[in-house]
């Protein structure tokens, strides 16, 4: 996060064969309305593309929307890539539809937070702000 302007940068991505982007657009809009800079990558990206983009954009938070059920394949891969790029100070968040036991497993693996389909906008905004504040300045 920039010390002076205080603008949080978030990159939102849809990864894999998941074509449902209404949810991620709602999230993008509510983060924008909370004063954040939101970079959206569009549909059908690979984990490599998204991590590359997050590093170049130097975002505070990388948010991945997954409604396809591939979260246990894609998210661990992204955690690996972030570590490999020496970019694991970028906070990884996930959103979408996932079973509770997977949520617990993902958080153990290093996903900062998982927000499910019923998370209201203020929770999403609050969670992003909290995680960035907890990480502190870089």
């Amino acid at each position: 996060m920039s010390e002076k302007t205080g603008v949080i940068r978030v990159l939102l991505a849809k990864v894999g064969l998941d074509g449902h982007d209404r949810g991620v657009k709602v999230v993008a809009r509510c983060l924008r309305d909370a004063g954040m800079d939101v970079i959206y990558t569009g549909l059908h990206r690979t984990p490599e593309e998204v991590v590359d983009a997050a590093v170049q954009e130097d975002v505070d938070v990388l948010g991945v929307s997954l409604l396809s059920g591939a979260h246990m394949t894609i998210l661990p891969r992204m955690i690996d890539l972030l570590k490999k790029t020496d970019a694991d100070d970028i906070i990884l968040m996930a959103g979408g539809v996932m079973p509770d036991e997977d949520v617990a497993a993902l958080k153990k693996l290093g996903v900062g937070e998982v927000l499910l389909q019923d998370a209201p906008p203020e929770t999403i905004v609050g969670t992003v702000r909290r995680l960035v504040a907890e990480r502190g300045p870089r």
């Binding site: 800079d37 959206y40 990558t41």
Partner: peptide, 14 residues
């Protein structure tokens, strides 16, 4: 109004 932004140029830059 909010100062926030949607930066969507990457959507085209695949």
């Amino acid at each position: 109004f909010s100062g926030g932004a949607i930066l969507g140029d990457r959507v085209r830059m695949t």
